[in-house]
Design a binder for these strands. Structure first.
Lengths: 333, 333
DNA sequence: TTGTAAGCGTTATCAT
DNA sequence: ATGATAACGCTTACAA
């Protein structure tokens, strides 16, 4: 910066004012001179020094289990875009389910002004610890202490979706997924049970436990569909499970939806292009991320607040895999 | 830090040594005392101050167009994991095809020690500019100046895949994709043409231009398949295009692969679970990212070098959509 | 093994 | 509108 100042014949204060774009106004002629000098000497501001002086990293951190599947990528993309307009950079960290995730986040925390923590990444105690030090927003996870929480609605949609299946006349509907793996999945399981009970049916005592990947959906659905009194409908906790389940039905020679109805969750991009097109529930992924960024920003700018809880609505997407007539919903233009 | 030092009855130098984990060794008893004090006063290092003092941000930046589809997410995940083991944080920035991407990257550059730039994000001049200031690794993009480049092999695989289609007896094979959209796509188009010429056929003068999304694949394939002498095989530049194309064939009542063979590229997770299972080419996504991180690290640690070019091999994945017997390649366990 | 003190490159306050 | 200069919180010779 001194170099630029010399080159332009001004003080570093002035250089800072024009390059940093703040502080007292600078004469336009001077601005041009400084800009020219900066370019001439190939100068660029140092973010670290800047952060130290301003007491602001100008960055937020987001911690997620991994990036497989469209869910995290979608949310993070929305988060990144919102952060960008707020002038924040975003640092990412995947825990990969490691037990030392806490340390990872602790390290991250030294470089950011706020943290977005997805469910299933760090234990509650850790959340409390971080929330004490900086604004924290939780994503898809019950509120902890003073941290804010953003979630997508699950229970009512699950109830509606299971109700829809009931409306098709199914009496043996299995839930394929792992309610214990995340609060979101847990609520889908709850909503599903409520729908069955609402129809005076006894929901199964336990779900057909299944991780959120195609291969697991294929395996578990294969097992379930081979049983004596196999279910006639599969309520899958994610589109990926559902895709695997469809493949399993196919392999067993069962027609979907005529012999087995299958529904998913998420509305991944391919969902409408497979055959039969998948009935599912769409989550507002990008919005989830954008809200998280916005909420974090108020925590960063403002005083430490109480912590909000926001629940974003989801949308039932009825296509063909549930048994509805296959109105072609694919874009024709 | 002074607070901790007081609390522990030592100097800030000692605190730095134990908390920073470097410099001269510290007596174990002292270490414990400092650690305890730090916890007691709820102290955490300040990354900005640290970066300023060490002249190292301990972070790398990655710039990509967006996060839709599995490609970027896969590469970035591999990148992040490798960076983590190298002790680097990763900052992400999506350009969303904006023209002011350069400024975005310029801002990012003030906070990182190195940059990973995906193809189609910033112009060559900008790459040169950044490469002059810090290590830069290009991903899926021809080499520019002193920047290193990592790519996945495209041409030979495309030749092999098109050759495979030829082997099935197809004589009218269309290329669906946009060679101009990325160097990768361009090479696939080249390899495809080479294969046709190698079989003494005249490749079409132009590809069936199509963006990399299901909806576009659906639209373009629908148009192509409706033509008089419609192709009997579709060589799609991505799995997403292929999925859309399959749906289009389906909508037209054409059986895949009996009436139209369709191949993709990428081997996205659902590719093996759709019906028919997609014949495609698998790219080593995570490895691309990991290599980028590693290459960047040598640039950061070492002296400014000449810039390497690494091409990672891809793998032909023959399944059913090309017309091969549908050996069930789904996991059964 | 530990302490002292000089930076690291900005921003921001206070003069001018 | 611009200039001097004191922080900002840490690391790291150099001393002890």
């Amino acid at each position: 910066m001194y170099t630029v100042a010399n080159h332009a014949g001004v003080s570093i204060a002035t250089v800072s004012r024009v390059l940093g774009g703040r502080g007292a106004p600078v004469r336009e002629q001077t601005v041009r001179r400084v800009l020219a000098s900066a370019r001439a000497v190939g100068y660029r501001l140092n973010g670290a020094a800047r952060a130290l002086a301003t007491q602001r990293h100008g960055a937020i951190g987001v911690v997620f289990p991994n990036l497989s599947g469209p869910y995290y990528a979608g949310v993070i993309l929305g988060l990144e875009e919102a952060a960008q307009t707020l002038g924040q950079s975003v640092l990412i960290a995947a825990t990969h389910g490691r037990p030392d995730a806490e340390d990872l986040v602790r390290g991250l925390a030294t470089k950011v002004d706020g943290l977005v923590l997805f469910g299933r990444t760090v234990p509650d105690e850790a959340v409390t610890e971080f929330a004490a030090a900086m604004p924290v927003v939780l994503l898809g996870r019950p509120q902890v202490g003073s941290a804010s929480t953003i979630r997508a609605e699950n229970r009512a949609s699950a109830r509606a979706l299971a109700g829809h299946l009931l409306g098709h006349g199914h009496t043996r509907i299995a839930f394929v997924g792992d309610p214990a793996s995340s609060p979101d999945a847990g609520e889908r399981w709850t909503g599903y049970q409520e729908a069955l009970r609402g129809a005076a049916m006894r929901p199964p005592l336990a779900p057909e436990t299944c991780a959120f990947r195609e291969a697991d959906g294929y395996r578990v659905a294969g097992l379930v569909l081979r049983r004596k009194r196999a279910p006639t409908a599969l309520f899958c906790a994610s589109d990926e499970i559902a895709m695997g389940a469809c493949a399993a039905a196919d392999a067993l020679g069962l027609a979907v939806p005529q012999q087995v109805a299958i529904t998913g969750w998420d509305d991944i991009p391919v969902a409408r292009f497979v055959s039969p097109a998948l009935t599912t529930v769409r989550q507002p992924l990008a919005q989830l991320g954008a809200r998280a960024a916005a909420l974090l920003q108020v925590g960063i700018d403002g005083p430490p607040g109480p912590g909000e809880v926001a629940t974003l609505p989801t949308q039932l997407v009825i296509r063909a895999s549930c048994g509805c007539p296959a109105a072609d919903q694919r874009p024709t233009a």
